[in-house]
Simulated assay, not measured.
Amino acid sequence: MKAIVLGGGIGGLATAVALDRAGWQVEVLERAPEFGEVGAGLAVLPNAMRALDSLGLGDPVRALAVDGAQAGVQDVSGRWLSRADAAELRRRYGEWAMVHRADLLEVLRAKVPAEALRPGVHVREVHADGTVVHSAGTSTADLVVGADGVRSATRRSLWEDAAPPRYAGYTTWRMISAPVPVREPVETWGRGMRFGYAPLADGRVYCYAVANAPEGSGGGLAELHERFAGWHDPIPALLAATEENAVLHHDTYELPCLSTYVRGSVVLVGDAAHAMTPNLGQGACQALEDAVVLGSAVRGVRTRAVLADALARYDRERRPRTQMVVRRSRRIGEVAHWSSPAAVALRDGAMRLMPRSTFVRSFAPILDWTA
C-alpha cells in the first residue's frame, strides 16, 4: 500500500515516519525547494514527547533539548500572576522539552527514507480517489495525507464549503536572541499584549511576542522595542540581543471546525485539519499525535475497504480531541488579550488567587494523552 503525504513540515514528516513504520510505501511532496525549517523555538509538551517516543524519536529529541516546563505567568512589572510548580508538572504529566524547530524537523526528516522525499513540488489539486495533480505531473496512491498547513490545497480541493482561515485578532513575532541569562520559560501578560521566553540548549533564548493588531499590520524589531519598553527584565535585554533578521512576524489564524477529516482516500492532519491559535503550545504537538494515531489505524491495512474503516477510526479519535484543543486555545487567547484596564485588573487578581494545584490540574485534558 502506498501513501502520498502532502507537506514536509513537522506534521507531514511525522506522519511519513509513522506510515513507514506501519509498513507503507511513502512519498512526501513538499512545495519548498528543500526540506527545512526557518522557525524559532518549539515547546514539546509531555503528550508530544509520548508521541515521539512512539515513533522511536524521543531520545534523539531529548539530546537536543532542555527542560521546557512553564514557570508561570507574570505581569509587566515582573510580579507573578500564576506560579507553576515545575516539579509537580513533570511528576504529574511527564517530560517537557524546549527545542529549536529546525532541530526537531531534522530528526524527523532523517527517519524518512531519503528516496521518499520530493521537494520543489507544488500541489495544485487533490481528488478523493487518491489522485494528486502537481507541478511535476500526476501521482496516485491508496492514501493521501493532507499535511499542507493552514492554507491547505488538500482542504481547498475536497472541503470546498469549509470556511477560510479566521484571523484571531492578534499578530505574533517569534525570534531567537543571543545568549542572555534566563533560568526558565516565562510568559508575561499585559493589556492586549504578551511576551514569552525560554532558554535553548545552546544558550540562546527563544522569544515570542503577541499583540492585538489589525490583520496585515505590525512591523519588525523596532516595533517590538516600542511596544515592550518598560516591561520587566529580561525582556528589554532579550530584544537588545536580537538581530533584525532573526525576527519572524505572522498574523495569527485558526481554522473553523470540520465535520470530518476524511474524504474518500484522503485524510487531513495537523494545521490542515485543525489550525489553532498558539496559546496552549499545541499546534505541533497535536500534529505529532495525529501522526501516531493515523499510523496505528492503518497498520496492517491491505485493501481499500479496510482502509475506509481505519480512516473512520482515525477521524472518530482525533476530531473531537483536536477541536477541543482549538476551543480551549481560543478561550485562553481571548482572556490573555483583554485590553480594558478594568478587565485586566479583574483577570490578574483572579489569577493571583488561583492555587498552584488548580493550575497543574488545568493541563490534564491536554497533557494526559497517551499513544
Results as ranks from 00 to 15, higher is better:
residue 48 A to E: 07
residue 164 P to I: 03
residue 177 S to G: 12
residue 89 L to W: 06
residue 262 V to Q: 04
residue 129 D to N: 15
residue 23 G to C: 04
residue 294 L to F: 10
residue 124 R to D: 03
residue 75 D to W: 07
residue 25 Q to N: 13
residue 83 R to S: 09
residue 278 P to F: 09
residue 312 A to S: 14
residue 48 A to G: 14
residue 223 E to F: 06
residue 174 R to P: 00
residue 129 D to G: 08
residue 55 L to I: 05
residue 214 P to F: 01
residue 109 R to G: 06
residue 158 L to S: 03
residue 64 L to K: 15
residue 113 P to M: 11
residue 72 G to S: 13
residue 270 G to R: 05
residue 290 D to Q: 12
residue 158 L to M: 02
residue 202 D to R: 10
residue 203 G to C: 10
residue 317 E to V: 11
residue 20 D to N: 15
residue 268 L to C: 10
residue 182 V to H: 04
residue 232 H to A: 13
residue 325 V to D: 12
residue 166 R to S: 02
residue 163 A to N: 07
residue 226 E to Y: 02
residue 299 R to G: 14
residue 367 L to Q: 14
residue 70 Q to E: 13
residue 219 G to D: 02
residue 72 G to Y: 07
residue 305 A to H: 14
residue 328 R to P: 04
residue 130 G to T: 05
residue 235 I to L: 12
residue 310 A to D: 12
residue 350 A to V: 07
residue 343 A to E: 14
residue 171 T to P: 02
residue 64 L to D: 06
residue 186 V to K: 01
residue 62 R to F: 00
residue 43 A to R: 04
residue 114 A to L: 12
residue 164 P to Q: 07
residue 354 M to H: 04
residue 176 I to L: 15
residue 194 R to P: 03
residue 163 A to H: 08
residue 323 Q to I: 07
residue 63 A to K: 15
residue 89 L to A: 11
residue 6 L to I: 15
residue 5 V to D: 01
residue 55 L to E: 04
residue 351 M to D: 09
residue 254 E to R: 11
residue 61 V to Y: 03
residue 106 E to G: 02
residue 131 T to A: 08
residue 371 A to V: 08
residue 231 W to P: 05
residue 168 A to T: 05
residue 278 P to C: 13
residue 15 T to M: 06
residue 171 T to C: 06
residue 291 A to E: 08
residue 340 S to A: 14
residue 168 A to E: 09
residue 267 V to G: 10
residue 311 L to M: 12
residue 263 R to E: 14
residue 316 R to C: 03
residue 133 V to C: 11
residue 242 T to S: 10
residue 2 K to A: 10
